[in-house]
Nucleic acid binder design. Structure first.
Lengths: 213, 213
DNA sequence: GCAAAAAAGGGGGTTTTTCCCCTTGTGTAG
DNA sequence: CTACACAAGGGGAAAAACCCCCTTTTTTGC
């Protein structure tokens, strides 16, 4: 019987190499490659001699090209490749981004090896594996009546500058706009995000990873 | 030849179990136990039938009782146990906290298995293993001429409130102080932390984990 | 294809908050 | 005795926040 081929994309070498050993103890699977970030992985996919794995284990937090970017790229270029996301992040936003970009499942790294193996088998056989946490999020996404907040590029730019010690005047200069326009951006965002002060905006930005500190 | 006994404390089951396999491929070592947080580990240490490992691999980010707390407990109760910290965090504060509390080394999880094995051997033989990143921090700690910033309890209280949408007047009410006293706290902190605005204070607080978001 | 709507940029003016400097009283530890 | 942290306050300038208003372009809905 031919083994199911697994590929690992994770920047934590200690983890990916160790995980290889764990997988090698499962008789149904074998690891056919591992990469330390999305860039290395996508480059490999583009190579001539690339042999498709059955499942890709994709980490979310990676340098250079992270899991979400990689997922987007795969959606565009190789939507047939099956990805099981593997991460420590359990926040809704990250999980939903991975799922909506085509990940077939999302496992936390504190999953026990038995469940992990089950997930691999399900992804291979049924095509997906959704844990309770993921399906929970999917359900209340449906009940949310599509009220998701979309920030425009220019707004994001403004938010990033608002998360510094700059005054609004300085921000205006930085964005080549009149301070009055900046005034408008602020008012708009305060209303849209239900905030009252710039402090709130900063907290919102950090919470939603618009800026990283 | 008797093998060197390794104990793993990490909440990421997938990682700790996988790491066990990796270690089992090293002929000099064997894993003699693993725990999913500091509490489980310290309980085990207290147990009658506890057999001391030669090296403890300790994760920093864990629920219930994290690496730093565990390190403090070990320093108090079992300073003879050798700990090699293993984490994804590479910020100076975390690393220094682990080292000053007695960790014999601090490895990042993106270390390659070869270096990892070297580190284990060095900790066992020489008693410590400091990577460049750690010794770098140690050196500029020495050059810092002990100017570390100590925040008083009341100041921390103020900072926490400053990281909300409250006005200074509301903060004053919350702390049962005059707004003018609050003014003093702010001025003091701005000078002490080299900040100019409340935004800066918020960013500082988040960066130094005074508040969590 | 055209109107309506939404997005992007700007203006004037007011109130509130923030920020900064400087002073005063009060315990208290050296 | 005095230096020092802590609490409180005054005055004033500068930002920030909050109003209502305007034009122009781009997008979108029949």
């Amino acid at each position: 019987m031919e083994k199911i081929k697994i590929m690992i994309v994770d920047d934590h070498l200690l983890f990916s190499q160790s995980l290889s050993f764990l997988i090698s103890t499962f008789k149904e699977f074998e690891v056919c490659g591992s990469y330390i970030n999305g860039k290395e992985f996508t480059n490999a996919v583009e190579a001539e001699n690339f042999e498709k794995p059955n499942i890709i284990l994709l980490d979310v937090n990676m340098p250079i090209m992270d899991g979400i970017e990689t997922m987007k790229w795969l959606k565009q270029n190789h939507p047939d490749l099956k990805v099981l996301a593997l991460s420590v992040n359990d926040d809704e936003e990250t999980i939903m981004k991975m799922i909506t970009n085509g990940a077939k499942g999302y496992l936390l790294k504190d999953t026990d090896p038995k469940t992990f193996k089950e997930a691999l088998l399900e992804v291979y056989n049924k095509g997906f594996y959704y844990t309770e946490i993921v399906s929970g999020f999917l359900i209340n996404k449906l009940n949310q009546t599509e009220n998701k907040i979309i920030l425009k590029e220019r707004e994001v730019e403004f938010i990033k500058l608002a998360c510094t010690e700059k005054t609004y005047k300085e921000i205006a200069d930085g964005m080549c706009l009149s301070p009055k326009t900046i005034d408008g951006y602020r008012e708009n965002l305060f209303q849209k995000l239900e905030l009252k002060t710039r402090i709130g905006l900063v907290l919102y930005a950090i919470k939603h990873k618009i800026v990283c500190i």
